[in-house]
Design a protein around this nucleic acid. Structure first.
Lengths: 144, 144
DNA sequence: ACATAATCAGATTTTTTTATCTGATTAAAA
DNA sequence: TTTTAATCAGATAAAAAAATCTGATTATGT
C-alpha cells in the first residue's frame, strides 16, 4: 500500500490535533487519547514520549499526570510534528527515490512536489486556529 | 520513516520513466532496468509484471524479450502507475488516517491535500513530453 | 531440433514497522 | 506515609513490506 505518513506519524498528528482542541493546559492521559482516537495505547504512549522530547507537547508524571500542548497552537506547524516523529527524511528524500535528485538535477516531480510540501507542511501557521479547532472537533466526534 | 510512495511504487515509477525515455517499442529486460536504476532485479521483475497485467507496459517473453511502454507517453499519467501498483488506497485513505474523513466531515488537511493530489497525479498529462523526457534522461544519467 | 535467454509464478527469507508486554520511576491524593 | 495512577524505558512479539530464491514456461536464434 502506498502511504503518505507512517502510521506512527499519523497517530502523532492525530494526538496533537486532539490536544489542540483543548484549552492550553488541558491535560490528557495516554489512555484517554488512545481511547478517543481508537488507536493502540502502548504505541501512542511511545509517540507521545517522542513528541515530549522534541518539545511539541509536555508531560506531567505521576498521578493526575498526562500530556498537553507545549506551544501556542498558532505557532504550531505540521512540519514540526512530522520532524519530531519521523525526522527530516521526508523532506530530504526524493519523492520518486532517485538518489541524486536535487534542484540542479531534478526528477520529473521535483518542483511540483517541493512546492506542495511547502504549502502543506506550513499550513497550521496560516490557517486561523478557530477554524482548525472546529474541523478537528468535528473529526474527533465523527470517529466515535 | 515517513514516505510518500511505497518502495514498490517508487521502483515502478522509475522503471516506467526509464521506458519513457526510449522510442516507442524500445525494449528492455528486467535485468537491464534493474542495473540502470540500481534496484534489486527480482523485485523489479515482480513490479514489471504488475505493470504488465495492468496494461501500462507490455512484455515480450522468450529470448530477446523484455518490457516496453504500452501507451503513448502523452496519455500516461502518474495516477495510472500508482493505481496499477498500489491500488486506489492512496486516494481513498485519509491523509491523517481518520477513518471517517470525507468532503462533508473533512480532516484539517483534507481540502489542501486532495487539491494537491489532483494536481500532482495528473501531471504527466499536461507537461509536455519533451521536457519530461529530458528531465528523466538527466536523472537516469545522474544515477550512474 | 536444440540451446539460450528472457518472462512468469510461487515459495521463502530478511528487514522494517507496528504493536505489546513488563517493570521501574514519579508525584498526587487519601 | 502509603496507596494509587500516571509517565518512562527497554525488551519482545506480531505483522507487513522488501528482497531473494527456485524452477517452469516461452520464444528467439543458431
Amino acid at each position: 500500500m502506498s502511504i503518505i505518513f507512517s502510521r506512527k506519524c499519523e497517530y502523532g498528528i492525530q494526538a496533537v490535533l486532539l490536544l489542540t482542541t483543548e484549552q492550553q493546559g488541558g491535560i490528557h492521559t495516554a489512555e484517554e487519547i488512545a481511547n478517543r482516537l481508537k488507536i493502540p495505547k502502548e504505541f501512542v504512549s511511545k509517540i507521545l514520549q517522542e513528541l515530549t522530547v522534541n518539545g511539541i507537547i509536555f508531560s506531567k508524571k505521576g498521578k493526575s499526570g498526562g500530556f498537553a500542548l507545549a506551544k501556542n497552537p498558532n505557532e504550531l506547524k505540521l512540519l514540526d510534528i512530522v520532524l519530531a516523529i519521523d525526522g527530516p527524511d521526508i523532506f530530504n528524500r526524493c519523492v520518486l527515490g532517485f538518489p541524486n535528485c536535487s534542484d540542479k538535477a531534478p526528477c520529473p516531480l521535483h518542483y511540483k512536489w517541493s512546492q506542495m510540501i511547502n504549502q502543506t507542511f506550513n499550513m497550521l501557521g496560516d490557517e486561523t486556529m478557530d477554524k482548525f479547532k472546529q474541523l478537528t472537533i468535528n473529526k474527533i466526534e465523527s470517529i466515535q
